[in-house]
């Protein structure tokens, strides 16, 4: 099942990138997609045991999260613009490094959380050390807003339950 899904995805990418729809190129695409999906579908979907429905549900729940993330990215860009260009805003730059415990377990959820933290206003993730996430935050105000609900949102996307809190 997952092999078929990988085949469809790689065939789609082949068609987009080659742009030629004659028989020869499509045959090449089918052969290489079959090879890729047989050998390396485990790289794209490491967990073959989970059902297809949960994957579809994850993808559906990702869409509102993505819209929220876009809004946050635009806000954070205006924040950087304000700090960099507005005269006298430089005194708001008071960096600090914050550590907080991760409740998320799976690797991909942690990846999504770290990337989202990098893209949201005033915070950049530095490293994950064991179960601790280190976040560099640019001003006092953004440090306080970090403790909010981002981890809960990521957990909702992946259908995980947070262990701490």
């Amino acid at each position: 099942m997952y092999i078929l899904l990988t085949f469809i995805l790689s065939m789609l990418i082949w068609v987009i990138f080659s742009g030629l729809l004659d028989a020869f190129h499509l045959t090449l695409g089918v052969v290489s997609s079959i090879l890729v999906s047989v050998f390396s579908s485990r790289i794209l979907f490491p967990n073959h045991t989970s059902s297809m429905g949960s994957l579809a549900a994850q993808s559906l729940r990702f869409i509102p999260y993505f819209i929220w993330l876009m809004k946050e990215i635009i806000v954070s860009n205006f924040h950087v613009l304000y700090l960099a260009l507005f005269p006298g805003a430089m005194k708001h730059v008071q960096p600090s490094i914050v550590k907080f415990k991760l409740g998320l377990k799976s690797e991909s959820a942690r990846y999504l959380l770290a990337n989202s933290i990098t893209l949201t206003p005033g915070t950049v993730s530095v490293q994950i050390k064991g179960d601790e996430l280190w976040v560099h935050s640019i001003s006092q105000k953004t440090t306080e807003s970090l403790e909010g609900d981002m981890e809960k949102r990521v957990a909702r996307v992946f259908g995980e339950s947070l262990t701490n809190s």
Binding site: L119, V126, I138
Partner: peptide, 11 residues
Amino acid sequence: FYTRMHAAGKG
């Protein structure tokens, strides 16, 4: 360096 990374990563 760390604050510069903020500007680089987001902008």
